[in-house]
Design a protein around this nucleic acid. Structure first.
Lengths: 157, 157
DNA sequence: GACATCTAGTTCCACATTGCACTATATGGT
DNA sequence: ACCATATAGTGCAATGTGGAACTAGATGTC
């Protein structure tokens, strides 16, 4: 297959991914409390899954966003009492971000709010299908990440 | 499989998709002329693939974005001479958006700029894999779209 | 055909993102 | 110990996103 037909196929893949991402984002946001957006929730979710006590910069790297963006996202969560920041005893320049009980509970409530929906999904988009899909996407993600590093450096990265 | 294990799996799917989307976006933008962002290019690409002469509202629906967002995105492309808008003879309220030769050329240049990269990818993420992936993602997208309609209405939609 | 209602697009505003410049702290070389 | 350089985080400004209210034009009802 020549590049002529091949490139558009990859484009279609990323196009499809982009649309799914947008639909999923909108769906998620329709269930978040007013003023909280998908990226804020993603940060919250990350702290639960990975572990809280991360530094803002570690988190910025994990999401591949500039550190200024992370500063602002954390600030929103902190204003709402979903996380708190404490000085990092190991580095005077740095901070650590901790979940509050409120933060944990909100994340839990949102995640389980989707239980019903995904239960109904199982017929059309079987769990086994999703389970098979995820590793393939992981491969693509890792490869993209490598391409990224080869291609350019994100400032602040 | 109970909802307890199932929901996180779907979350992981969308998480993976979100990260890929972000990496792909950043990669694309690193190759766009300064001041042009991924959404602008996506609009340009859409006009080439689907057909130009669409109305802004049709385009907004295609991308599932509010019409105000589309107004702004088209304005950016028009300022750069990549598209022009003309009144819609069939509806005095409406407009039609046309590609300029510059718009077409830019799109072509960017798309083929990825030929080399995807050629190299073929070993690690085979075209056949991608071809198998796309229809599955399409199914998910359509189902998400249905869930969206059932769940809420996008304002302005 | 007049009028209520609907629709396409814009304007305006609040907020998110992110590059740049800056401060404060850490680290490494001498 | 000193100083150059690197790193963590913030403030600001430019731009993007998208909700609410608005204008102009279309459509449907009587």
């Amino acid at each position: 297959m020549g590049a002529d037909e091949q490139t558009p196929l990859y484009f279609r893949l990323f196009g499809e991914i982009g649309i799914i991402n947008q639909l999923a984002t909108t769906l998620l946001e329709s269930r978040l409390p007013k003023g909280l957006l998908a990226p804020h929730f993603t940060v919250l979710n990350h702290l639960v899954r990975v572990k809280d006590g991360r530094t803002p910069l570690e988190m910025a790297r994990a999401f591949q966003v500039p550190k200024t963006t992370m500063t602002h996202q954390i600030a929103v969560l902190e204003r709402r009492g979903l996380v708190v920041q404490s000085p990092n005893p190991e580095d005077g320049r740095s901070k650590r971000v901790w979940l509050t009980p409120d933060g944990r509970h909100l994340r839990e409530r949102i995640v389980h709010g989707f239980d019903d929906m995904f239960q109904n999904w199982s017929d059309v988009v079987p769990v086994e299908d999703v389970a098979a899909l995820v590793p393939r996407l992981e491969r693509i993600r890792k490869h993209l990440d490598a391409a990224r590093s080869a291609d350019f450096q994100k400032p602040d990265g």
